[in-house]
Measured scan of single mutants.
Amino acid sequence: TTIEWNGTKITVDNPQKAKELAKKIAKKLGLTVKVHGNTITIE
């Protein structure tokens, strides 16, 4: 699972952990999480 935001890509083996990490990042930055299959985008 890949997390993408602002040109940065982070690959996380565990999809559940990836989703939790994305939510934490999005919350800190005041952004939203969008899931597209194996890609999680923070916008």
Rank of each mutant, 00 (worst) to 15 (best):
T8R: 14
T32C: 13
N38W: 04
Q16L: 11
L21N: 00
A22Y: 02
T32Y: 06
I10V: 07
N14K: 04
N38P: 03
K9F: 13
L31D: 01
T2G: 07
H36P: 00
V33F: 08
I25P: 00
L31M: 14
V35G: 01
N14S: 13
H36I: 11
A18G: 03
K17R: 12
P15N: 07
P15K: 10
I40A: 01
V12K: 02
T39E: 06
V35W: 08
A26S: 06
K17L: 12
T39K: 10
E20V: 11
N6I: 08
T11C: 11
D13M: 15
K27I: 10
E20T: 11
W5I: 10
E4N: 08
K17T: 09
T39L: 10
V35F: 12
K9G: 03
T39S: 09
I3E: 05
A22Q: 01
G30N: 07
K9P: 03
V33D: 00
K23S: 09
G7L: 06
K24C: 14
T8V: 14
T2N: 08
T2M: 09
T8C: 15
I42A: 01
V33T: 04
G7W: 09
A18D: 00
K9C: 14
A18Y: 03
H36W: 08
V12W: 03
E43T: 14
T41E: 05
K9D: 02
N14F: 04
T41S: 09
G30V: 01
Q16G: 07
G30Q: 04
T8Y: 15
T2E: 08
A26C: 07
I42H: 01
K27F: 07
Q16V: 12
I25N: 00
I10K: 01
L21T: 02
N14A: 03
L21G: 00
V12R: 01
T11P: 03
G7M: 06
T11L: 12
K34E: 05
I3F: 05
E43H: 11
K19M: 15
A22T: 01
V35P: 02
K24Y: 15
N6W: 14
T8F: 15
W5N: 04
D13E: 13
T39P: 00
G30H: 06
K19N: 07
V33N: 00
E43R: 09
I10D: 00
W5E: 03
L21F: 09
E20Q: 14
K24S: 08
K28G: 04
G7E: 07
L31Q: 04
N38V: 04
I3Y: 04
G37W: 03
K19V: 15
V33S: 02
E4K: 09
K34L: 08
V33G: 01
T41K: 10
N38E: 03
G37Y: 04
E4V: 13
T32N: 09
I3T: 06
K9E: 05
K28Q: 10
A26F: 05
T8L: 15
T39A: 06
G30D: 02
T2D: 07
N38R: 03
L29P: 05
K34Q: 09
I42W: 03
T39G: 03
V33C: 04
A18T: 02
T11D: 04
G37E: 06
K24R: 13
K27N: 11
N6H: 12
K24L: 14
Q16F: 11
K34C: 09
G30R: 03
T32P: 06
I3C: 07
K34Y: 10
L29Y: 15
V12Q: 02
K27D: 14
N14R: 03
I25V: 03
I10M: 06
T11K: 09
D13Y: 12
K24W: 15
K23N: 13
G7D: 05
K17N: 06
T39Q: 08
W5M: 06
K34S: 11
I3N: 06
V35D: 03
V33W: 06
A22C: 02
I10C: 13
N6M: 11
I3K: 05
T1K: 03
K19E: 10
V35R: 04
I42Q: 00
G37D: 05
T32Q: 10
I3G: 07
L21H: 02
K27S: 11
T1M: 14
G7V: 11
Q16H: 12
T11R: 10
H36R: 11
T2W: 09
E4W: 12
K34W: 06
P15G: 05
W5V: 09
N38Q: 07
N6Y: 12
V33Q: 01
E20P: 01
A18W: 05
G7K: 07
I40M: 03
T11S: 09
E43P: 06
A22H: 00
Q16E: 12
G37R: 03
E4P: 06
T32V: 14
K17G: 04
K34G: 02
K28A: 10
H36C: 14
H36G: 03
T41A: 05
E4M: 10
V35K: 03
Q16T: 11
V12Y: 06
E43G: 15
K23R: 11
Q16Y: 12
T39M: 09
I10Y: 07
N14C: 08
K27E: 15
G30F: 02
T2K: 06
A26T: 04
N14Y: 03
T8G: 13
V35N: 03
I3M: 06
T39V: 14
W5H: 05
T39F: 07
T39Y: 10
K19T: 08
L29M: 06
T1S: 08
G37P: 02
A26V: 04
A26P: 01
T11M: 11
K23C: 14
I40W: 02
I3L: 08
A26I: 04
G30S: 03
T11V: 14
E43C: 11
T8A: 08
K9L: 09
I10G: 01
L29R: 04
E43Y: 15
H36Y: 09
P15M: 14
A22W: 02
K27W: 06
A22L: 03
E4G: 07
E43Q: 13
I42N: 00
A22I: 05
V33I: 14
T41C: 08
K9N: 06
K28I: 10
I25M: 04
L31C: 06
Q16A: 12
L21W: 13
T2S: 09
H36M: 10
